[in-house]
Amino acid sequence: MRVIEIAGDKGPAEALTLSEQPDPVAGEGQIRIRVRAAGVNRPDLMQRQGLYPAPPGASPILGLEVAGEVDQMGSGVTRWSVGDRVCALLGGGGYAELAVVDARHALRVPESLDFVQAAGLPETVCTVFANVFEAGVLKAGETFLIHGATSGIGVTAIQMAKAAGARVIATSRGAEKTAAALALGADVSLDARSGDLEGAIRELGGVDVVLDMVGADYAAINQAVLKPMGRWVVIATQSGAAAQIDLLKLMLKRITLTGSTLRARPTDEKARLIAEVERTAWPWVVSGQVRPPIQASYPLEQASAAHLALEAGDHVGKIVLTI
Rank of each mutant, 00 (worst) to 15 (best):
I4V: 15
P55S: 02
G8C: 05
F133Q: 01
G27F: 08
S19F: 03
V82W: 01
V66A: 00
S75I: 03
Q47G: 06
A88T: 08
V66S: 00
V101F: 08
A13M: 12
E65F: 12
L138C: 05
G27W: 11
G120T: 12
G92F: 10
L51E: 14
I6N: 02
T143D: 02
F133C: 00
I4T: 11
G92L: 06
V66C: 00
V137D: 15
G8I: 05
D9F: 02
V70W: 08
A15C: 03
Y95M: 02
G68M: 02
R32G: 07
V132L: 14
F115N: 04
P53H: 11
L51W: 07
D84H: 09
W80T: 04
A7R: 15
Q47E: 08
P122M: 13
A15L: 00
G8H: 11
V3A: 14
V132K: 06
E69R: 12
A54E: 11
D9C: 10
L89C: 04
R104V: 04
C126V: 08
G91M: 12
V125C: 01
E5T: 15
A58D: 13
P55R: 08
E123C: 11
L89F: 10
V132M: 04
A118S: 08
V137N: 15
L90R: 10
D114M: 07
A149I: 12
Q21G: 01
Q47D: 03
A88I: 09
T127K: 13
V109D: 01
A37D: 07
V35A: 02
G120S: 13
V66F: 00
V3Q: 05
G76S: 12
L113K: 12
M46T: 03
P24Q: 07
G68H: 02
P60E: 13
P60F: 09
G68Y: 03
H147F: 00
G57S: 06
G76V: 08
R36N: 12
P56D: 04
S75N: 12
G91P: 05
S59K: 06
A15P: 00
D84Q: 04
S59P: 00
D102C: 11
Q30I: 03
E134F: 07
A58K: 06
C87V: 03
P55G: 02
Q30K: 12
F115Y: 14
L113T: 07
G11I: 03
A149T: 12
R34T: 13
A54V: 09
K10V: 14
M46G: 01
V125Y: 06
G68F: 00
G148C: 06
I61C: 01
A26S: 14
L90P: 08
G63P: 01
A119V: 01
Q21R: 15
A37L: 06
